[in-house]
Simulated assay, not measured.
Amino acid sequence: MHGLQVVAEHRPERAWRYAPPGSHSNDTQSPPRPLWLLPQPQKLPLREGLPYWKGPLILEFGPERIESGWWDDVDVSRDYYIASNSHGERLWIFRERRAPRCWYLHGLFA
């Protein structure tokens, strides 16, 4: 049996680890993160220039810039946003800084 623990790492895919149930992390200063990350970020379609997922998305918070990983060849350079749609769903989306016209869905808030 195991639980999850936050790790001091900027890259979302690497910001957690398995830990004994009930153990606590010392990282309490991290920005809001979704409970569910997709196994792979999903490219979002654009409609009228806005990212779209079950409706047009409204950017509520951001950008949070994450640039990390150059030293281990898993480099990311992204601007993350918390967005919502007309159904009240809150999403964690990003734009690759190297390809700013593309939006990706990376996680869902509970």
Rank of each mutant, 00 (worst) to 15 (best):
H2D: 08
G3R: 10
G3M: 09
G3A: 14
L4P: 10
Q5R: 10
V6M: 08
V6W: 09
V7Q: 11
V7C: 09
A8G: 05
A8K: 09
E9Y: 00
E9N: 04
H10M: 11
H10T: 10
R11L: 13
R11G: 12
P12I: 14
E13N: 14
R14V: 07
A15S: 13
A15I: 13
W16D: 09
W16M: 10
A19Y: 09
H24P: 14
S25M: 04
N26W: 01
D27G: 04
T28L: 09
Q29N: 08
S30T: 15
P31W: 12
P31E: 14
P32K: 03
R33E: 12
R33T: 14
P34H: 13
P34V: 15
W36I: 14
W36M: 10
P39M: 13
P39A: 13
Q40L: 12
Q40I: 10
Q42A: 13
Q42P: 08
K43S: 09
K43F: 01
L44H: 04
P45F: 09
G49Q: 03
G49D: 03
L50V: 01
L50F: 00
P51W: 03
Y52L: 08
Y52N: 11
K54D: 05
L57A: 01
L57Y: 02
I58D: 11
E60Q: 12
F61A: 05
G62R: 06
G62M: 05
P63G: 07
P63W: 04
E64A: 05
E64P: 03
E64Q: 06
E64N: 05
R65H: 11
I66Q: 03
I66L: 05
I66A: 04
E67R: 13
E67D: 12
E67H: 12
S68N: 01
G69V: 06
G69Y: 06
W70M: 04
W71T: 01
W71G: 00
D72Q: 02
D72C: 01
D73R: 08
D73N: 12
D75R: 13
V76R: 12
S77Y: 14
R78F: 08
D79T: 02
D79W: 00
D79H: 02
D79F: 02
Y80D: 11
Y80S: 10
Y81F: 13
I82L: 06
S84Y: 06
S84D: 05
S84A: 07
S84W: 06
E89L: 07
E89D: 12
E89Q: 10
E89M: 07
E89W: 06
R90A: 06
L91R: 00
L91W: 02
W92Y: 10
I93Y: 01
E96G: 03
E96I: 00
R97C: 07
R98W: 12
R98E: 15
A99R: 07
A99F: 07
R101Q: 13
R101K: 10
C102T: 06
W103Q: 02
Y104A: 04
L105C: 01
L105R: 01
L105S: 02
L105W: 00
H106Y: 12
H106E: 15
H106Q: 15
L108V: 09
L108Q: 09
A110H: 01
A110Y: 02
